[in-house]
């Protein structure tokens, strides 16, 4: 790609930002479908086994709800930090962006750690990824719960790593608006990160509240 991009004109440069954003949106489109399978599988389970879901909510108690609500705030805050970072780089303030992106990476990391805490609690209660057995009160909840949330968690981890990559590139002088070094890299990471946030908005409501 390097051979092709190093002599782009300003016009082509804009086109290249547009290309990357459009590609990211298309990628998000296919991710939407992918997540919808897991969400659909959970919805069918919730529809046919409402009692098992109630049992899990009981077992987790108020503390569980508060923990996951706090976690939701973390992810929403990281999304906010992301968009503020993008605003800084659009103004040409690279240092400002790096500060916001550290916040994004940090919040994402804490989110994953708290998810680990939550998983541990659930495992203690006997909610497992493999089928719990027909006589368990949660029968079937585990697989329908862990699959979407863990898949989402994997996306958060990938996002944190990507965020660190963006920070590293920014510290090495990328995104200064010179030809071939526009802020597209930050913007498409932002799209990804917000999408992961949107997925969580849906999962949070569907799994923990409904």
């Amino acid at each position: 790609m390097a051979e092709l991009t190093h002599h782009l004109s300003a016009e082509q440069e804009t086109a290249s930002i547009e290309n990357q954003k459009f590609a990211m949106w298309l990628y998000i489109a296919s991710e939407t479908i992918l997540f919808s399978i897991f969400i659909g599988a959970y919805a069918v389970f919730r529809h046919s086994q409402p009692e098992a879901v109630k049992e899990v909510h009981h077992a987790l108690g108020l503390f569980g709800t508060l923990l996951v609500t706090f976690n939701s705030f973390l992810l929403l805050a990281s999304s906010w930090a992301m968009v503020m970072g993008l605003r800084e780089i659009k103004r040409g303030n690279r240092q400002g962006m790096i500060r916001w992106l550290w916040a994004v990476a940090g919040l994402g990391t804490v989110f994953v750690l708290l998810q680990y805490v939550e998983y541990s609690r659930l495992a203690e209660e006997g909610v497992t990824l493999y089928f719990e057995g027909a006589d368990s009160a949660f029968a079937g909840f585990g697989m329908h719960f862990y699959t979407p949330t863990a898949f989402h968690g994997a996306h958060v981890i990938a996002g944190v790593l990507w965020c660190l990559l963006v920070i590293w590139k920014a510290r090495n002088g990328a995104y200064d608006g010179a030809p071939g070094r526009n802020h597209a890299g930050v913007e498409i990471f932002g799209l990804y990160w917000h999408f992961v946030d949107v997925v969580w908005v849906v999962l949070f409501t569907l799994i923990y509240l409904v």
């Binding site: 489109a29 939407t32 919808s36 969400i39 659909g40």
Partner: peptide, 20 residues
């Protein structure tokens, strides 16, 4: 972008409602 995003969202909703 709007079309690229809304189409799969609508498809996903329809698919989930069908499965339900």
């Amino acid at each position: 972008y709007l079309v690229a995003f809304l189409t799969p969202v609508i498809m996903a909703i329809v698919a989930i409602l069908f499965l339900l």
